[in-house]
Design a protein around this nucleic acid. Structure first.
Length: 112
DNA sequence: CCCTTGACTATCT
DNA sequence: GAGATAGCCAAGG
């Protein structure tokens, strides 16, 4: 565990863990909120490394598509998890069950 | 130290 | 709107 991860992981994990049910965030958004605007790739690595429970299925691409290749098992798994939360799918794109709440989430994490 | 590899993103054709 | 291009940055070989 290097210095970067020890700071980055908890932030990213905390943010993901606080994404409300039915809501989704992009890798870039999470990295930005963590204070590392260009570390979207690191967000992905942090999630892969994370062994404990985390709503990783709420993390998608900035264009609202899933990050995995369609038709793969893992892709379908994420899709199912999102559907179970009330989200819907249209032409491969995710439609959150809740309208974007960037500001609310911001307050939820960083306080008012 | 150089090169490749990503669960990325924005922009240009 | 799909594909290519260019930034991006840590990690591992």
């Amino acid at each position: 565990m290097n210095a970067f991860q020890s700071k980055f992981d908890p932030l990213v994990h905390g943010i993901i863990a606080n994404i409300p049910k039915g809501q989704v965030m992009s890798y870039g958004d999470i990295a930005r909120k963590a204070g590392f605007p260009r570390h979207s790739r690191m967000v992905a690595k942090s999630m892969t490394r994370c062994s404990y429970e985390l709503p990783w299925h709420r993390v998608i691409r900035s264009n609202f598509t899933l990050a995995f290749t369609p038709k793969t098992v893992i892709y379908n798994k994420q899709k199912q998890l999102l559907l179970a939360e009330g989200c819907s799918f249209t032409q491969g794109k995710v439609i959150p069950a809740v309208t974007p709440i960037a500001e609310d989430l911001d307050k939820l994490i960083w306080g008012p």
